[in-house]
C-alpha cells in the first residue's frame, strides 16, 4: 500500500511501546512531511544515545562514560544505598530531592515464570558493594508487586547473612500525598488503613 521505505518505518515504529499501527502511520507521515534536517536530527539523536549511553560500572544506572552522574557526585552519602528495579525508577527518587545516598539498579526483579534468577540481576554486585563496608543502610525500593516483594525479601535474607551490620529497610506504601481520598483505589486505601499511625 505504501512505498517500501515507508512500510519499513511504520513497522519499526509500531514495535515501540504504546505505539499501534495507526499511531505509527501518523508518525511516519509526519516525518515524511518534515524537513530533511528534522528527520536527520531524530535519527542522529537515536544513534547518539545508543552509541554513548551505557550502564554505570558501579550502580548500573544509565551512564555516559564508566560512571553515572550520581556515582561521580562527591557530595552524595556513601553509607546509604537505594535499590531499585530499573534505571527509570531512579528518576522519581531523585525528584524527591530527599535521598542523598547512592543507588543500585538491579535490572529487573526475580520472576521464576519469566526465568529470571538472581544471576540474571545485579544482585551479587549489590551484596559485594555492601560487604565491602561503608554502607549503613540499604533502602529496598523495588515495586510493591509480587515479584518486587519477593526480590526485597531475597535481598533482606541474603544481606542478613553476608553483611549483618547493614540495616535493610523497605519503602512504606499508602496514600499518595496531596491526592483526594475519594480518588484512592480500595486496595491502596485498605493498606493505608491497616498501616495507620496514632497522632
Amino acid at each position: 500500500m505504501y512505498a517500501a521505505p515507508v512500510s519499513r518505518l511504520i513497522a519499526e515504529l509500531s514495535r515501540l511501546p504504546g505505539i499501534g499501527q495507526r499511531s505509527a502511520q501518523r508518525l511516519a507521515f509526519h516525518l515524511l512531511r518534515a524537513s530533511s534536517e528534522e528527520a536527520a536530527a531524530l535519527a542522529e539523536a537515536i544513534q547518539e544515545m545508543k552509541r554513548t549511553v551505557g550502564l554505570c560500572e558501579r550502580c548500573f544506572n544509565l551512564a555516559v562514560g564508566p560512571l553515572c552522574r550520581i556515582c561521580e557526585d562527591p557530595r552524595r552519602d556513601d553509607d546509604t544505598l537505594c535499590v531499585v528495579e530499573e534505571p527509570s525508577d531512579v528518576i522519581p527518587m531523585e525528584r524527591t530531592n530527599e535521598f542523598r545516598g547512592r543507588y543500585h539498579v538491579l535490572g529487573g526483579a526475580l520472576s521464576p515464570i519469566d526465568g529470571v534468577d538472581p544471576e540474571d540481576l545485579r544482585l551479587e554486585e549489590l551484596f559485594r558493594r555492601v560487604e565491602g563496608g561503608g554502607v549503613r543502610e540499604v533502602v529496598v525500593a523495588t515495586n510493591p508487586t509480587t515479584t518486587g516483594e519477593a526480590t526485597a525479601l531475597y535481598i533482606a535474607d541474603s544481606l542478613r547473612e553476608r553483611a549483618p551490620s547493614a540495616t535493610v529497610t523497605r519503602l512504606a506504601s499508602g496514600l499518595p500525598v496531596g491526592a483526594d481520598l475519594e480518588y484512592a483505589d480500595e486496595v491502596t486505601l485498605g493498606k493505608a488503613l491497616r498501616g495507620r499511625s496514632s497522632l
Binding site: L110, S111, P112, G115, D117, T147, L153, Y154, D157
Partner: peptide
Amino acid sequence: QRNALIARIRAGRSAPSLLEP
C-alpha cells in the same frame, strides 16, 4: 511463581534455596 520455580529447580536450572522468599 512458586510453581514455576519448583519446575526450574527440578530441571536443575535454579537453586532450591531460592524458595525462601
